[in-house]
């Protein structure tokens, strides 16, 4: 197995402690399979025991390890170091969250923006016509969105925007609970809603789980247009 030495420049400090944020360098040998999260784990164990970063599932399902890798929002666990350009790798906390220090952030701004009563389960799209156990009404699965906030970080629209993740969740709610149509479209059509979208499509580009938030925003716009046409 081939290994290569790589240098990480990690923004340390910052957050509520008021300690100044500054880059620190860490070098280590990595094999061709190593992800940015693997690298962070080994840096913490071998060089920086107090390094703060978020992680949980290590396979792109929890959405906790979003960070800025060489200026782009990415999940550390799904980003292979080998795929990053040669030279130093720069790691900074994810934009749009509350910084806690080092690479750790609190997702309070994102989680608070989600519609309060939206569910997390949907019907599975796989083998839809398949037979089922008698006791299972429908095959179900979790929503694609892992609430990582990469789309919010990549979106060029500034403040006063609910943002791609939340609007995508609204459109999913519309599909699942059509009886809430009026309430959902009202939320989507607010001044901080779908009309603030500039169609830059950055959200869909960075989404690690193929939610395609931009598509959901377009669909919501169409639904809103239908409503205004009907008046």
């Amino acid at each position: 197995m081939s290994t290569q030495e790589r240098n990480f420049r990690i923004l340390r400090g910052g957050g509520p402690s008021g300690s100044p944020a500054e880059f620190q360098s860490y070098s280590l040998e990595l094999n061709e399979h190593a992800t940015v999260l693997d690298a962070l784990e080994w840096i913490r164990v071998e060089q920086a025991p107090d390094l703060m970063y978020r992680h949980s599932c290590h396979h792109g399902s929890c959405g906790t390890c979003g960070m800025t890798v060489n200026g782009k929002p990415k999940l550390a666990c799904l980003t292979k170091v080998e795929d990053l350009a040669a030279g130093d790798i720069k790691l900074e906390p994810l934009v749009g969250m509350e910084p806690l220090g080092d690479l750790a952030v609190s997702p309070v701004p994102l989680m608070s923006a989600y519609p309060a009563n939206s569910g997390y389960i949907r019907e599975s799209e796989v083998n839809k016509d398949a037979a089922r156990p008698e006791v299972v009404d429908r095959f179900e699965r979790f929503e694609n969105c892992i609430e990582c906030g990469l789309c919010m970080a990549a979106c060029p629209v500034g403040d006063e925007f609910q943002g791609p993740a939340v609007l995508a969740a609204l459109n999913r709610e519309l599909a699942k609970t059509p009886e809430r149509r009026a309430e959902i479209l009202h939320a989507a059509g607010r001044p901080d809603g779908v009309y603030r979208c500039e169609r830059a499509l950055e959200c869909s580009r960075v989404c690690p789980t193929a939610v395609y938030p931009a598509k959901h925003i377009m669909e919501l716009r169409k639904e809103l247009e239908k409503e205004s046409g009907a008046e």
């Binding site: 978020r54 599932c57 290590h58």
Partner: peptide, 11 residues
């Protein structure tokens, strides 16, 4: 010591 469920649970 770190994020919640960052040891064994989350994986």
């Amino acid at each position: 010591r770190g994020e919640l469920t960052s040891g064994t649970t989350g994986r």
